[in-house]
Nucleic acid binder design. Structure first.
Length: 591
RNA sequence: GGUCGCAUAGCUCAGCUGGAUAGAGCACCUGCCUUCUAAGCAGGCGGUCCUAGGUUCGAAUCCUAGUGCGAUCACCA
């Protein structure tokens, strides 16, 4: 089926041909601004290149031609060089009728056998998740869902940074001060391990201070603090496979994973497959050796291995240390290759990682290309801005972080407060209420973060709590709940046989907005931007509320109008649901 | 210093491949609950779109230079 624009484009071209014996390459359309009559606007200016004359006169001539030749066109006016076209209601009504019962409206069935793997979260295992991770997780999850909705097959994954000096720090502090402590219901494993990471830092700082008091320079003291040397020794033992160290490492990592799982579940995100750095860095080393043979890499006299990227405008990049151990990028090379081995249908990958690593991913993708991997051209770094506090950067060691679990709880508490003030849920059970508070609190948090363009940094002020009014998640959820209330009262059987009625302005506006949704999903997928979906949904909801408050739905003058309005409301609520679903936001039946 | 990103109302953000008088929310001010949920609706106030040049019929949008903020340029991750 041709879209309205495609149809009009053909006719405008025909008009130019008939009136001026000229050919147009394309026609520029835009939605008609509210202050003018009409639905679609043709911009005449670009045609002046092909057709000489006064744009107003040309617009009038094209308008008249369309009015004479196209049934859908029922009127026009020209303002300056803008031809505003009025479209017959029947077009909008027919469109509405063709989609009104689609439960998956806006979604496309899987059209592509080639899958995309989306990596997100990817935490270190030495501390709990904080607000920065929350943005990462929400973005990664949402982009995955958007890609799926746009017809792609998707695998969600993460890379877990489960090895390295940072984990040894927590392990060492636990050995020294832990006294056999284990996670409890009040203290999740990730929190417990995080506490020891902080304890390590405190002990380390104290040692530095006393070394400086003994006359060492700060630089020396930082290098020589015994507890740091001990942590480094521990890392060596881990790499050598020391039984006790590895056992403790396994235990504490498992505590962290269990803790993370609770957080992920709370947020409502999931993964299809997991990768651990401790498993992939060796494969990375293999491919470094391989690349050395094929000349992609070069070895320095001290034994370190490098990739020369100066011809590509970048620097020389180290891929293996002089002592033969792996650096960060070594395991990223290994992980990427491992993933394609495990999932041969994957044709591309998306890495959800903060913009502080822009350079790293540029280098990684280039190296993989040089190693000759076909799929390397389909790698995308979903780079996003940092979440900063008014006091600046969040720092785990200094305790200036907004903890993910705490934040979710606070959002839920706020939702509870507001709900109680409004008092609409008196007949709900405690369990139902709590479930709803969480839905709304999370909705507020997720929308707050996802509505912002990923590229931009977010300034989060814990003192100014996230809004529940206006352009927010709860506002959208509220609109959904309102519609459900109407649908409960309406007789839904009648909705199946909708007949054409004269459209109210608000109704037409709603249908136009609904018509955009499938395209919004496609755009969001191409641009990897949940913000597009969020902002679209807000516009749709605003249009609906305006309709709702200005036009009576159940109290319509005729049954025909009532049925149509109920059906229209139903499609709006389905669209809200589908839009929010790809944002990871749930909808409530009441609120 | 090199490279990359960002800059729009007091605050938080939209503004699609250049198009009409730059839009929302919050905050502030007016109205609207005996009628479908007022977490709402209708309206008001509020702008040198960082600056200066350029491209064009037309620039918040594209180009160049500059300013400010952030990131990065590690045998850290």
């Amino acid at each position: 089926m041709m879209t309205l624009q495609e149809t009009l484009e053909l006719h405008v071209k025909a008009a130019i041909k008939a009136l001026f014996q000229s050919d147009l390459d394309s026609v520029e359309f835009q939605a008609t601004r509210k202050e003018f009559a009409g639905d679609v606007t043709v911009v005449v200016f670009p045609m002046l290149r092909v057709v000489k004359g006064n744009p107003v006169v040309i617009g009038e001539q094209i308008g008249q031609y369309l009015l004479d030749h196209v049934d859908l066109v029922k009127g026009f006016n020209v303002v300056k060089g803008f031809l505003n076209i009025e479209i017959a209601d029947s077009y909008y009504f027919n469109f509405f009728k063709s989609v009104k019962d689609k439960v998956n409206y806006g979604y496309v069935d899987q059209t592509d056998d080639e899958a995309i793997m989306v990596e997100y979260s990817s935490p270190n295992t030495n501390k709990p998740l904080h607000l920065g991770h929350v943005r990462n997780v929400l973005l990664g999850y949402s982009v995955s869902e958007i890609l799926k909705a746009s017809g792609k097959k998707v695998y969600k994954t993460q890379i877990i940074n489960d090895r390295g000096i940072h984990i040894c720090k927590s392990m060492l502090a636990y050995k020294k001060f832990g006294d056999g402590e284990t996670p409890t219901e009040d203290l999740k494993g990730d929190k417990l391990v995080g506490n020891y990471y902080v304890k390590f830092d405190q002990a380390y700082k104290a040692e530095i201070a006393s070394l400086i008091a003994e006359g060492q320079s700060e630089e020396e003291a930082k290098k020589n603090a015994p507890i740091l040397l001990e942590a480094q020794e521990m890392l060596r033992k881990w790499e050598a496979g020391d039984k006790d160290v590895v056992a403790l490492w396994n235990t504490m990592n498992q505590w962290v994973y269990d803790g993370f799982d609770i957080t992920y579940k709370n947020i409502g995100v999931d993964f299809d497959t997991y990768y651990y750095e401790s498993n992939t860095y060796l494969l990375g080393k293999e491919f470094v050796a391989e690349g050395l043979k094929t000349g992609v890499f070069e070895q320095d006299a001290d034994g370190s291995v490098w990739c020369d990227l100066t011809e590509d405008g970048l620097d020389r990049k180290i891929v293996l240390r002089a002592d033969g151990t792996a650096v960060y990028i070594t395991q990223d090379i290994g992980t990427a290759i491992q993933r394609i081995k495990d999932y041969p249908d994957v044709g591309g990958m998306v890495y959800t990682v903060g913009n502080e690593q822009d350079y790293h991913f540029k280098v990684l993708f280039l190296i993989l290309k040089k190693l000759g991997f076909e799929w390397a051209k389909n790698l995308f770094h979903l780079s996003y801005g940092m979440v900063d506090l008014p006091s600046g950067k969040m720092k785990s060691r200094e305790g200036t972080v907004v903890d993910a679990d705490d934040l979710i709880q606070e959002m839920s508490d706020t939702a509870e407060e507001i709900s109680k003030e409004l008092g609409k849920l008196e007949d709900y059970s405690e369990d139902d209420k709590n479930e709803l508070y969480k839905k709304i609190g999370l909705g507020a948090l997720k929308y707050y973060i996802l509505k912002v363009d990923p590229k931009k940094r977010i300034l989060f002020d814990p003192k100014e709590s996230i809004d529940f009014q206006g352009n927010t998640g709860p506002f959208i959820q509220y609109t959904y709940a309102r519609i459900q209330s109407i649908l409960r009262k309406a007789n839904l059987k009648d909705v199946h046989n909708v007949v054409e009625v004269t459209l109210h302005d608000k109704e037409k506006q709603l249908i136009k907005q609904l018509e955009l949704f499938p395209e919004v999903i496609q755009n969001a997928a191409e641009q990897h931007s949940p913000a597009l979906v969020a902002n679209y949904t807000y516009d749709l909801v605003k249009d609906f509320n305006s309709f709702y408050q200005n036009v009576s739905i159940l109290g319509a003058d005729s049954d025909e109008e009532k049925n149509f309005r109920v059906a229209l409301s139903k499609l709006v609520s389905q669209t809200i649901k589908n839009a929010l679903q790809v944002l990871g936001i749930e909808v409530p039946e009441r609120m």
